[in-house]
Nucleic acid binder design. Structure first.
Lengths: 211, 211
DNA sequence: CCCACAACTTGCGTGTCGCGCACAAGTTGC
DNA sequence: GCAACTTGTGCGCGACACGCAAGTTGTGGG
């Protein structure tokens, strides 16, 4: 999945894709959550240095372009889990994989806030997260030795993990939250694997409490 | 939430909303997953007995209209959990509430298959499910006595439950699955609350195994 | 019983957008 | 070096979301 592992064509394709996505996100942030309609396709294409028609070859809606980086990231989550050592327990492996993937660069607060506060963009982000569930479920099934076609555990866990990442993101960009995204992510994911519903594990020890 | 608890205006509004949604879903099913573009707004409006402009007052996209019933159902999930007896353990309460809400009429296989096999519609369905997470998280927080602003557990669990419902639906309409939707739902939800990652709880006893 | 007010529906006009088609430019494999 | 393929681009059509200004129907006060 390294950039230099592809031929020239694929690299150019990926470059323009990222250029369009980056331009789209930047323009969306400039206009703010309520001015999404003011971001015209023509502006995005111009800012990315391509024609509107080319933009349309890559994305079929503004929302898709703006959330492109999330979609790209989601595609890597399955591979990230597979690259963990085989003996590692599921919880630790998932935790490490997700944290590595989502905190290598600390996420862009403005971009995330823009997406989470705009219904149309949030829908596209949900699609991006759901794209990760399939591969993630396969990786989980492989690690736990379960058949994803007979046992619902891998798919459900994958969906729960994706949901936890989403919740962590939403919580992280609430005003007053000072914890790192990695810490928030850890808290959220621990809720998935430890069922503790009504224990006093909260507050200062277990999950939550970084507002 | 009963129909006769509203004044005439609200009832008419809800009626036309359901009429449009029903017509949209029916037409979408007729055209199949690949012919969604052939379903014109004009057709939906005509089938529902309203003008295209009125359709547009209720929904701002075909996908939204087609998935309207899912959105309406999602809005009820929080209330469904609240209406469970207070002493009931969280897992049982969630299980009972969800099963009651999603199996009162057994879901429409054709409609569900249509939605799950069409990317654009699946995105809208994801939005509908995510709408349920907020109220559901509040209900869970209230039941477990946790503060949803400090503790991530309610939100994460809500997201996991929503994800489990989704996974159950996807699994249920796979060819060869003969179990009732209620049973599939039970299996999926049990994966959320029992962490059992690598136990041999599968196959004939625990979760899964109804293919 | 009637009337004023509010909500809902509808027709029309406008600005965008998605996308199919045909062609030019660049890249890869032989 | 040549041929096949992929990708970027210009053009144009059909559809659609949405604002605006009527007309129509439900609601409540005198």
């Amino acid at each position: 999945m390294n950039d230099d592992a592809m031929d020239l064509r694929a690299r150019n394709k990926q470059a323009t894709r990222e250029a369009i996505g980056h331009a789209a996100l930047r323009l969306a942030i400039e206009q703010g959550p309520n001015g999404l309609a003011l971001v015209r396709v023509h502006d995005i294409a111009t800012a990315a240095g391509v024609s509107p028609r080319t933009y349309n070859n890559y994305f079929s809606s503004r929302e898709e372009a703006i959330c492109a980086f999330q979609a790209d990231q989601s595609r890597r989550v399955g591979q990230a889990l597979r690259s963990r050592p085989a003996g590692e327990p599921l919880e630790e492996a998932v935790l490490a994989a997700v944290i590595e993937l989502y905190t290598d660069p600390e996420p862009d607060r403005a971009g995330l806030a823009m997406i989470m506060s705009t219904p149309a963009l949030e829908g596209e982000a949900l699609k991006a997260f759901s794209m990760a569930e399939g591969p993630l479920a396969e990786a989980i099934a492989e690690r736990t030795g379960t058949d994803p076609r007979r046992d619902l555990f891998p798919s459900v866990t994958a969906a729960a993990v994706a949901g936890a990442i989403r919740v962590a993101g939403r919580h992280w960009l609430q005003p007053g939250v000072t914890a790192s995204f990695a810490a928030t992510l850890r808290n959220a994911l621990s809720c998935v694997f430890t069922p503790a519903p009504l224990a006093d594990s909260g507050k200062d020890a277990g999950n939550g409490g970084d507002s």
